[in-house]
Design a protein around this nucleic acid. Sequence first.
DNA 1: AAGTGGTCTAGACCACAGA
DNA 2: CTGTGGTCTAGACCACTTT
Lengths: 239, 239
Amino acid sequence: MSEQNAARPAPKHQQVRDSLAAEIRRLEPHSALASERDLATTHGVSRATIRIALDALSDAGVVYRVQGAGTFAAGPAISKTLSLSSFTEDMEVRGWTASSRLLAADQVPAGGKIADDLGIAAEDEVIRVSRIRLADGTPICMETVHLAADGVPGLLDHDLSTSLYGILEAEYGLRVVRAEQVVRSVVMDVGEAALLGQPPGSAALRVHRIGLDQRDRPIESTTSMYRGDMYDLRFAVQR
Amino acid sequence: MSEQNAARPAPKHQQVRDSLAAEIRRLEPHSALASERDLATTHGVSRATIRIALDALSDAGVVYRVQGAGTFAAGPAISKTLSLSSFTEDMEVRGWTASSRLLAADQVPAGGKIADDLGIAAEDEVIRVSRIRLADGTPICMETVHLAADGVPGLLDHDLSTSLYGILEAEYGLRVVRAEQVVRSVVMDVGEAALLGQPPGSAALRVHRIGLDQRDRPIESTTSMYRGDMYDLRFAVQR
DNA sequence: AAGTGGTCTAGACCACAGA
DNA sequence: CTGTGGTCTAGACCACTTT
C-alpha cells in the first residue's frame, strides 16, 4: 500500500522483525512484549505474519516465548546462533577491521580429499588461494580455499586480496548459501606458527568448510587456521 | 485419525515432518519432492502445515528449496545444525558409548565469574561437580559444572556419575532448553593432560556453556575440556 | 503458459498460565 | 475465568523457474 518503487520490497515479516528488534532493544530484559494479536493489529498485519517475525527473533535468541504467559525480551545474550558469515562480517562483530594478505594463488590437480569435497575427479584441476587474514593489522588466521577450476575461468586474474565471495558472486554467479563445517583444536607446527607470528606449539582452531550453493552443490573447500589466543567461536544452541 | 491414546498427541506438522523425513531417506539426493500443494492433499493437511514441516527439514539440512522449481532431497550431509545435546547423545551420534567417572563434588562460594554467569552474588554458594567423561571407556573430556546451591538442595546426595540433566529435571524441575557457548582452542597443562591420559602440550577444545531454562534464567555454568585428537565440532550453517 | 515456492490474510480451536 | 502462545485451515496473490 505504501512504497513499491524499490528494486524489491522486503517481505512484511522482515520489516516487522526489524521493527520489533528495534523496540526490544529499548526494553528491559524479561519484560513482556505486546500479545501476538495486539502486535498484529498495531503493525497492520495478520497474526501469522507476526508469528513468522517472532519465530526469527526467537531463533536468534532475542526473545523467548512461554505458552499461556506471553513473549519476553531475552537477557543480554553473549551470542547468536551460528550463521554463515564472511571473515569481514565475523571481525566486525568483534569490533575489528578485517584485511587480507595474499600468500599464493595457483592451479593444481585436486587430489583425493579436495576432489571428494567438491564432487569432482582427483585429476581435475582446482584453483588454490592461500591468504593471511588480519584483524586490525594483526595476523589472526591462515586460510586456503579450493575451487573447481572449471567453474571459475580467469579467477587468478582478479585481485584476490579483496572479498573472494564478492568475486564469485559478481563474476561467476556463485553464491554460497550453506556450509558444512568441522572444527578441531590443533597445535601449530613451526611453519604455521611463523605465518601467524606465534611461538611453535601454540593452540589454534582449525575450521574445515565445504561451501554449498542454493542447490546444495559444493562450491568451495576451505581450511582455516585461527590463532587460539585471539579467536573463539560463540553461539547459542537450543533443544 | 489413528492413535490418540498417548498422553499428548504430537502436532500434525511434527508427524508430517517425521513422515516426510522417512520418505526422503529413500530418495536419491537432488531428486524432487512432490509440490507443497500435492503434499498437503496426500497428507490431509493444509499447505501452511506442510510448510512448517518443510521449514524444519530445510533448517536441518535434509531438503533444500528453490523458488519456482521445487523442493529437493539434500545431498548426504556430514552434519546437522548444532543443537543442545547431552554428552551421551553427542557420543551416540559418533557411535560411541558414554560413561562418567566422578572426580569431585562439593559446595563452595561462587566467586566473580561463576556468579556473573549464574546471576547470583559472588558470596553465594554453588554446587561444583567435576567429572571425567568417557567414550567406549576412553577419557575424552573433563567437565566441571556449577549450579546455584539454593536451587538444588540435597543434590550432593544423588549418584552424580549418572545423567546430571536427568537429576535436575526429575528432582528439581530444572530443564535446560537453551545454552550460550564459547569454544576456544587451548593447550593442556600437565594436570589436565594427565587426567585425560595425554602428553602435556596436547591440543584441546575448551567449551564454556551457560545453560538457560525456558524463561532464559541461568541454571548451570559449565566448562568442558575435550581431547583435541578425539573430538571435533560438526555443524551446518546457513545465510 | 503452467507450475513452483514465498508471502499473507482472517478466521478457528486447543493447551496452558495466571489472577 | 480470561488472555496467552501453539496449531491449523482454506483460501489468495506474487515472484520465479521451467517448458
